[in-house]
Amino acid sequence: MIEVRFFATLRTDRGKITQVPAEEVSTAGDLLRRFEIPAEEVAILLINGFHSKPEDAVKDGDVISLFPPVGGG
């Protein structure tokens, strides 16, 4: 399984954390599409704590963290 952790406004209607069968996705971008998150709404994408991009591969046991842009002042 792949663990997906949502942060801030990305939690709306998705919750904080969910699991996805590893065989159903191959990249972080696949996860964004699965959860209907446009790429421009993700500011920080971490795979196992490391800064990553949607095209990066994901595998069984990975933890994906998704943060939206926070930019008001």
Binding site: A8, T9, A39, E40, E41, V42, A43, I44, H51, P68, P69, V70, G71, G72, G73
Partner: peptide, 27 residues
């Protein structure tokens, strides 16, 4: 920076590209 219920803060030393990493192009 803030948005809704969320806030973030960081100390960015000269030469650190943190701003580019937290606000990638296209976001």
């Amino acid at each position: 920076a803030i948005c809704a219920w969320n806030a973030q803060a960081a100390v960015i030393m000269p030469g650190d590209d943190l701003i580019d990493r937290i606000y990638p192009e296209g976001v």
